[in-house]
Computed example of a mutant assay.
Amino acid sequence: MTGNQIEALIGMLVTFGLLVLMVLPSVIGIVRDRRIDRQIREAQEDREAGKEPQPQKSSSRSTVPSTATWYADGRRSKKLVSS
């Protein structure tokens, strides 16, 4: 390959890469919208069929507040007294 051919190949690859970078967000958005549409359709079909929706999965961890929450609650409960 000559130098001109290599430059042309690099130019085509860069152009193709830029095209992919510009089109990729649109493709991701279309796929996401189709997934959401499918979930909505399934939920409507379940509602029309009289089925109860599947319960959401909950975490097995307890919901104990963190140390930062305890500290913030203590700070909020103090009232400023003006003299």
Results as ranks from 00 to 15, higher is better:
53 P>A: 11
62 S>I: 01
70 W>K: 15
73 D>E: 14
55 P>N: 03
12 M>W: 04
78 K>Q: 12
36 I>V: 11
30 I>S: 15
56 Q>E: 15
51 K>I: 01
30 I>L: 08
49 A>T: 06
62 S>L: 08
79 K>E: 13
73 D>L: 15
18 L>M: 10
5 Q>C: 05
5 Q>F: 01
33 D>K: 08
7 E>H: 05
34 R>E: 13
53 P>C: 04
21 L>P: 00
39 Q>H: 15
65 P>R: 00
1 M>N: 09
47 R>P: 04
39 Q>S: 13
18 L>A: 10
6 I>W: 04
11 G>Q: 09
41 R>T: 10
15 T>G: 08
60 S>Y: 00
72 A>H: 07
59 S>P: 09
41 R>E: 15
25 P>E: 06
63 T>Q: 09
15 T>L: 09
41 R>K: 13
19 L>T: 07
76 R>A: 15
59 S>A: 14
24 L>R: 05
44 Q>Y: 04
21 L>Q: 05
4 N>S: 12
9 L>E: 12
66 S>C: 03
65 P>K: 00
48 E>I: 02
38 R>A: 15
5 Q>R: 04
29 G>N: 13
73 D>R: 15
49 A>P: 03
29 G>P: 01
73 D>Y: 14
73 D>A: 12
71 Y>V: 10
74 G>H: 03
76 R>G: 11
10 I>K: 08
5 Q>S: 06
46 D>F: 02
24 L>E: 01
61 R>K: 14
19 L>P: 03
76 R>S: 15
77 S>P: 08
43 A>W: 01
15 T>A: 14
65 P>Y: 01
26 S>A: 10
77 S>R: 11
35 R>Q: 12
12 M>Y: 00
43 A>G: 09
78 K>M: 11
17 G>W: 00
64 V>R: 12
76 R>T: 12
17 G>K: 00
25 P>A: 06
78 K>D: 09
52 E>L: 05
20 V>Y: 09
58 S>H: 09
27 V>R: 10
9 L>C: 06
65 P>G: 00
10 I>L: 08
82 S>V: 14
12 M>N: 10
69 T>R: 13
6 I>T: 05
45 E>Q: 08
2 T>G: 15
55 P>K: 03
45 E>I: 02
45 E>F: 00
48 E>C: 02
53 P>W: 04
26 S>D: 12
12 M>S: 11
77 S>D: 13
59 S>G: 13
57 K>W: 07
33 D>H: 06
1 M>I: 02
24 L>P: 01
76 R>L: 12
1 M>G: 15
37 D>A: 14
12 M>P: 00
60 S>E: 11
56 Q>T: 08
44 Q>N: 05
76 R>Q: 09
28 I>A: 14
53 P>Q: 08
23 V>T: 07
67 T>F: 15
63 T>L: 05
4 N>I: 11
66 S>Q: 10
71 Y>E: 09
25 P>Y: 07
7 E>C: 04
70 W>Y: 15
2 T>R: 00
22 M>P: 03
